[in-house]
Amino acid sequence: MKNRIALLIMLFGLFSMVQAADPQREWRRVYDLRGQWRFFIGDNPAWAKPDFDDSEWFKIFAPSNWENEGYPGYDGYAWYRKTFEVKSAEHLYVHLGTIDDVDQVYINGKRIGYTGLFPPDYSTGYNVDRIYKIPAFCLRTDRKNFIAIRVYDAEFEGGLVRGNLGIYEKLNEPELIKSLEGLWKFATGDNPNCAKYNYDDSRWNELFVPLSWEAQDYNYNGYAWYRLHFKLSSDYKNERLVLLLGKIDDLDETYLNGKMIGKTGIIKNNPLDIRIEGDEWQKVRAYDIDEKDIYFDRDNVLAVRVYDGLVQGGIYEGPIGIITKNEYLKWREKYQDRPFDFFKIFQFLK
């Protein structure tokens, strides 16, 4: 029995090491952001712009709390700015570690993400590891890029306090046959006709997908619709296909050419009747596409009804696109989180 308990402890330790190692295999750093940043206390939206002259700003080391870098006792707003270069704009994310307390992040003047809420509706995000997708259209591969970070600290230590800061390439992206990342039509509110193939969305605004709608200046909770027109080559007519919509906050119903092909959670017409279990926003949406529901070599319409109950909303994280069923199963098996089954081990110990 003692030998079996020792084996269980060894297996648990091995599992823990494997789990800890997985994130390291998922990312490749392409630019190191650790080191000296331009820094200034106060708050001004012009400081997000790439052409702003920050040459008179102070220099500060990050990651480190700003109290240890010459600003002891300071609570309030401050901005960080830095330049970086990349050779490719695909599959890139910025890792900023933990920021105390609230942040908004801009790449070349475009806001790409935030964590926490600024006053007057203050909510801290001090213990959240910041990882933000950088939309390809935000980046320049032929010259320097600018990153600007707006920070608010309510108490104790403040700033970019710890973490492996950098621009990282995500290595586990699936092999899509059709990427659907980019600008989609978007409208707040709820209208069941938005699901129809011939619905006129020409007057709708455009939003980048994947990216939360709050990061694109929609400070909104409730119903909204996304729509996208796309074509798919008949080369894939004999393939089993899957639609990947990444992660959506909170609930969704997804329609292809007017037919619902999948949903996560239950969206009811009365928001008071909607129940959010709590983890829907973390689930990767993968919906099978029936061959009768998709058109080849002509226009398709994808419509996504979303309900957001609190804070961040919308299609906020990829992958976004169409993949063959075989490739999807390989990707899911290799990269998707799977629970570790201790039951069989405990059976072994009996």
Rank of each mutant, 00 (worst) to 15 (best):
G309H: 08
F343T: 15
I261P: 01
N257Q: 14
T254E: 07
Q312Y: 08
W281C: 10
A303H: 00
F208I: 02
N270I: 10
K259A: 10
L256C: 00
G314Y: 05
Y220N: 03
K263A: 07
V301N: 13
T264R: 09
W213D: 00
K263S: 09
N205A: 12
L302K: 03
D308L: 04
D299L: 08
E214Q: 13
G313E: 04
D341R: 11
W281S: 15
V306Y: 05
L251W: 05
Q282I: 13
D217W: 13
W331N: 06
I274C: 06
A303N: 00
T324G: 04
D341P: 13
Y287S: 01
I294K: 01
G222W: 01
Y236E: 11
I315S: 08
K344E: 14
G309P: 05
N205W: 00
V242M: 12
L207I: 11
F296A: 04
R332M: 06
W225N: 01
S212W: 03
P319W: 01
L245N: 04
I267K: 10
P271T: 01
I289D: 05
K263E: 07
D290C: 05
E317F: 02
K334D: 09
P319G: 05
Y255H: 08
S234L: 07
D297V: 02
Q282D: 14
N269M: 08
Y307E: 04
F296M: 06
D297M: 04
G321M: 02
R298D: 10
R298E: 14
I276H: 02
D250P: 05
I323H: 04
G321W: 01
L207F: 06
G222I: 08
W281K: 13
N205Q: 07
I289K: 04
F340E: 02
Y316D: 11
A224K: 06
G262Y: 10
N269A: 12
T324E: 03
D288A: 12
L256A: 02
Y236Q: 13
V311C: 12
R305Q: 08
F343A: 13
I261G: 01
D201W: 02
G278T: 00
L245D: 02
E333G: 13
D217T: 11
D299M: 08
R332C: 04
E239A: 07
K283M: 11
A303G: 00
N257Y: 13
N219I: 14
Y287A: 03
L243M: 12
N300G: 08
I276D: 02
D279C: 14
D252F: 00
Q282R: 15
I322T: 03
R338V: 13
V311N: 15
L244T: 08
K247E: 13
G309K: 10
R338T: 14
D200V: 07
P210R: 07
D337S: 14
I294Y: 00
G278V: 01
F343K: 15
D337H: 15
Y226E: 09
K268M: 14
R298M: 11
Y236P: 11
E277A: 14
A224F: 12
K283F: 09
Q336L: 13
Y307A: 04
T324A: 03
W225T: 06
K292Q: 08
